[in-house]
């Protein structure tokens, strides 16, 4: 856009510019067309196709899609008890991860935004962001070796008469919380940072102690930021199937079921029907939190 220089293009650019200036609707259209086109065609289009295929079946012999309408996949999802069990387990894991991340991230973000000296802040943010670049897989495997019977955890805990919890659901929750922690710290930090110091001072001047200020001013104003962070931690946990394979022992989550059905079983329609479960949950969640203003706090 900014390349409107040079003699001849300039006059052309000027004409375009003039038209755009006179017609804000055109300006808006120009701004929206490309990004909305991309998101709607590429993303919603792909999702739509996926949802459509949930009503199809695969041919038992050839493995090809049979494009005739059926509710069979949704019926299977609704009636097979293992899907229900696994879905509940997955939502539980995602919720637990979100709660743990919030509990750990809030004090850290608070310290970074309101307690640490300003020159230390940059350093702390760098320290929190750097792990995002270290491969997620490598970190999960590092945790695996820490949880194992001869791993760091056992080694560190044995002197206290404790032992590593081993692989399983608890290990999965711990590792997911670890992996997604920065995604919670950052929005909360940004939210706290935006809180004007003057507002806190006003609260203090009006006689509120720190605790009261926290409850009545800080907390309500940072809830959108927490919710924003929870969108990440919840959805990233809900869709994960790799971490649980690494540290989950024999546990399986909804992501594993989707992956097995699309991969080993070559049954895309059933996988698509299963995928509607996290889609419904996440879209519902987004609609519910839209009012809190969380989407502006991402």
């Amino acid at each position: 856009m900014s390349s409107a220089e040079g003699a001849r293009p300039a006059s052309f650019a000027r004409r375009v510019s003039g038209t755009l200036y006179r017609r804000p609707g055109l300006r808006l259209g120009g701004l929206l067309t490309a990004p909305l086109g991309y998101l709607v065609v590429v993303y919603l289009g792909a999702l739509g196709l996926l949802l459509m295929s949930a009503f199809w079946t695969t041919d038992e012999f050839s493995g090809n899609l049979v494009k005739s309408f059926t509710w069979a996949n949704f019926h299977a999802v609704a009636t097979t008890s293992v899907y229900r069990t696994v879905l509940i387990r997955s939502v539980g894991v995602a919720a637990a991860v979100t709660v743990i991340c919030t509990a750990v991230a809030f004090p850290m973000a608070f310290f970074m935004a309101k307690v640490a000296p300003v020159r230390l802040r940059r350093g702390l943010v760098v320290a929190v962001l750097t792990p995002l670049w270290a491969s997620y897989l490598v970190k999960a495997f590092a945790w695996r070796s820490m949880f194992s019977g001869d791993g760091v955890l056992d080694w560190a805990l044995t002197p206290f008469g404790l032992s590593s919890p081993g692989f399983g659901l608890p290990a999965t929750v711990v590792v997911l919380s670890y992996l997604w922690l920065p995604y919670m710290i950052l929005p909360i930090y940004a939210g706290l940072e935006r809180l004007p110091e003057s507002m806190l001072e006003a609260s203090a001047d009006l006689g509120a102690k720190a605790g009261r200020t926290f409850r009545s001013v800080v907390l309500p104003l940072t809830i959108p930021a927490v919710v924003a962070g929870s969108i990440f931690t919840f959805s990233l946990s809900l869709g994960d199937y790799i971490t649980v394979q690494i540290v989950g022992g024999k546990t399986q989550l909804i992501g594993n079921l989707i992956q097995t059905n699309v991969g080993a079983a070559n049954n895309l329609p059933l996988a698509a029907a299963l995928a509607t479960l996290p889609i419904v949950i996440m879209v519902g969640y987004l609609l519910a939190v839209r009012r809190t203003g969380a989407l502006d706090n991402l």
Binding site: L39, V40, S235, L236, G239, M282, V283, Y285, L287, R290
Partner: peptide, 13 residues
């Protein structure tokens, strides 16, 4: 909502 959807829906979806 549309813009946040690709990151809010699980990667496998």
């Amino acid at each position: 909502i549309l813009v946040v959807l690709p990151i809010a829906l699980p990667g496998i979806v």
